[in-house]
Each structure stands twice: as C-alpha cells, then as structure tokens.
C-alpha cells in the first residue's frame, strides 16, 4: 500500500516527465507564439481570452474589493502627513475653478441661445456605462485594465473609456460581464488626437512608457512650440468621439511630443465607458464588422 501511495504522490509528474514533455511543451508554446504573431486578432485567440476574462471576473472582483480598501487606507495615512500642503493646493485650485465656473456659466447661456436657432442639430447623446476596475495587467509591456461591465451592458469593442480626469483608453475585448481596456501607454495603442491651439492632428502612440508620444500625420510642426498645449481626441477614423481630454504636451524636448496624460492609472478605480454612436450618413461599417466578428468567434 505504501509503495502505491508513494507512486501516487509523484503522480503529477513522474520521473520521465522532465525532458521530453518539457521540450514538447516549449515547442507548443513557441508555435502558439508564432501563430499569434501572424494572426494577433484571430477569433480563436480572442475568444479564448474573452472566455478566460469572463471566468476570472468573479474571482478578480471578489479579491479587488479588499485591495481597494487597503489601498484607500494607505492613501489616507499618506494624506495625514500632507494635509497642510494639500489644503493649500486645493484652495488655490478652488479659486481657479471658480473663475472657470463663471466662464462656463456664461458660455452655457450663449450656447443655449444658439441652440434656439432653427438650423441647430443636437449631436447624438452618449449613453455612458459606469464600471469598476477589477483587474490590471501589471506587465512590463502590456498595459491594460479589466472592468466589470461587458456585452450585457451593451459595451462594444472600440468604445472610449474615461475617468474623472480624462481619457483612459479604449475597449479591445468584451466578455459577457467584463471587458479589457487598452491603456494609452500600451505599445499597441493608437489614438487619433489633435493639439488645441495649434489645430494639428496626429496619432497618439503608446510606447510602454508613462508618456505616450504624438506622431504627426497632418502637417510639419518644426519650430512651433507646443509645450503645455492641451491634447484632445480628434474623432478621426470614427471610433472615439471628438473632444475627450487626453493630456498636455510635456515640457521636455521640443521635438519629442510626449504627452502628460490627465488620467492617473495608479488611481483609476472607477471608469465610464462612452457608448457613443457616431453621427453618420452611411451605416457604420466599423460596428457591423466588429459585431460579425464577435459572432464568428
């Protein structure tokens, strides 16, 4: 009996396991890797990822609760030590915001007057969906977050995700109850933006660093000092709505065009998915493609 038990204890990987299966599985992994290289968006892989995401969502949301709590506690302890300077900063910010509020109220009146005009057509309303961040890819290269809202809440691929500060990223995978948000810093992230003031359009490209960079497509900006200018989504390509705040051009080298994002990924807990229908004359090709894609997979 005892010898049998001895055998069974090693049942998970008998002696012979080591070399052969190691080689075999490494070969399988490398093959998988190369096939994902050539078909990164293959529906099989995407389906697998979406299923895994759905399966892991309950575990992740269960575990992320206490983590958020502890994080909040740690944050509070930090706040105790910085309460004076924070108070000062807030007072200053409040004063500035009051001026902005006056200006906004005046603008609202003006806009209301314009909207009375016959020719005015209201832009389609966004129907935002709120969601909590339940997971995050703490990887060196992949930068994404999982949120607890999916197809059941009518979330689709390509939709913009914002938090209280600005654009966070866009939806790239949707499960039934969870979705993946590709952050602006991810190497795969490409977001059409424009720079306020200069009216220059470009593409915000993720570089896996904290500050994504703008690569220009529209016009040469050599010699124009754009540092400190606001960057907003341009809506080009018809995926993200126009005018979502993204960040400001950082103070570094003039030609570098790195962007300080408004979004602070270390603090992003709650996000809003912009369920935005683009105003279009022709039927939206993009959404039909993605929906058939989802059906295929």
């Amino acid at each position: 009996m005892e010898i049998l038990g001895q055998d069974r204890r090693e049942g998970l990987g008998r002696k012979a396991s080591s070399r052969f299966s190691l080689f075999l599985l490494t070969a399988v992994a490398v093959l998988l890797l190369f096939s994902s290289l050539y078909s990164a968006q293959a529906s099989v892989f995407r389906k697998a990822r979406e299923n895994a995401m759905d399966a892991a969502a309950p575990i992740l949301s269960f575990l992320s609760g206490p983590i958020t709590y502890v994080d909040g506690m740690v944050g509070k302890i930090g706040d105790y030590f910085r309460v004076l300077e924070q108070n000062d900063a807030l007072r200053q910010e409040n004063a500035e915001l009051r001026q902005w509020m006056d200006e906004a109220l005046a603008l609202r009146e003006t806009i209301a007057a314009y909207e009375q005009l016959q020719t005015y057509q209201a832009p389609p309303n966004a129907r935002p969906v709120d969601a909590f961040v339940i997971g995050e890819t703490n990887d060196a290269f992949a930068h994404s977050m999982l949120v607890n809202a999916g197809m059941q809440k009518n979330i689709k691929r390509g939709q913009a995700v914002i938090d209280d500060r600005g654009l966070v990223g866009r939806i790239v995978e949707t499960g039934a109850h969870a979705s993946r948000v590709l952050l602006l810093t991810d190497i795969q992230s490409r977001v059409p933006v424009y720079i306020e003031g200069a009216e220059v359009e470009g593409i915000l490209v993720g570089r896996t660093k904290a500050h994504p960079e703008i690569s220009f497509i529209e016009k040469d900006v050599q010699g124009i000092d754009l540092r400190g200018q606001r960057v907003l989504t341009s809506g080009a390509g018809g995926v993200l709505p126009r005018g979502l705040p993204v960040g400001v051009i950082s103070d570094g080298e003039q030609n570098e065009m790195a962007v300080n994002l408004y979004a602070n990924y270390a603090r992003t807990r709650m996000v809003r998915v912009m369920n935005y229908e683009f105003p279009q004359l022709a039927p939206t090709e993009d959404t039909t493609i993605s929906s058939t894609d989802a059906l295929d997979g």
Partner: peptide, 13 residues
C-alpha cells in the same frame, strides 16, 4: 497570457 491580453504562448515559453 490569457489574463494579460498578450500574445498566447509568451509566458509559457
């Protein structure tokens, strides 16, 4: 790989 959304086969390799 599945949870990080990266290419499949990367971390196994």
């Amino acid at each position: 790989d599945l949870l990080s959304g990266g290419p499949l086969g990367l971390w196994p390799a």
